[in-house]
């Protein structure tokens, strides 16, 4: 290996450095784009056994709210990249306490209303929460 290095010409070393730099840049870009993917893009809203909404959060230009009727009433707020239950008239309001859902695997559940909002995909930091 040492001998090989000695034989390398100046131009060769230059080329090697450029190729390595390009490789590192590509790797950095790859990791960066992977990080970006941690943020969920597709939200599903399920009521009972039925998916009632499927929302692409990246396409949201203007934030808006919509309501889910059932035994109780939920107000859901959608904005670019995130979604949350803004208001609920159920007794425990655990869904509201879930706050904004932003990352893959984030979930908000209203048991009394059998409603679930989930960002599709698998979370990178935890597989689930024990509560």
């Amino acid at each position: 290996m040492n001998q090989g290095m000695n034989i390398l010409k100046k131009g060769d070393i230059f080329l090697v450095i450029i190729v390595i730099a390009a490789a590192l840049t590509a790797l950095a870009f790859y990791n960066w784009s992977r990080d970006k993917h941690k943020e969920g893009s597709s939200a599903i809203v399920k009521q009972g056994d039925v998916i009632v909404h499927r929302i692409n959060l990246n396409e949201i230009k203007e934030p808006y709210t919509f309501e889910i009727e059932g035994d109780y009433r939920l107000v859901v707020e959608v904005s670019n990249g995130s979604i949350r239950v803004l208001e609920a008239d159920c007794p425990d309001r655990l869904c509201v306490k879930s706050g904004w859902l932003r990352y893959k695997g984030d979930i908000a559940v209203c048991l009394p209303n059998k409603t679930m909002i989930k960002l599709e995909g698998v979370n990178d930091s935890v597989d689930g929460i024990s509560y």
Binding site: G4, I7, L8, K9, G11, D12, I13, L15, V16, V19, I20, A23, L24, L27, Y30, N31, R34
Partner: peptide, 24 residues
């Protein structure tokens, strides 16, 4: 030792980098 060898060397280094980065 010419351009051909240095390209081979570069490829070797790139493979090494990707393997060590653990992403694969």
């Amino acid at each position: 030792m010419g351009t051909k060898n240095s390209i081979i060397y570069s490829i070797f280094v790139i493979v090494l980098i990707y393997t060590l980065s653990g992403c694969s």
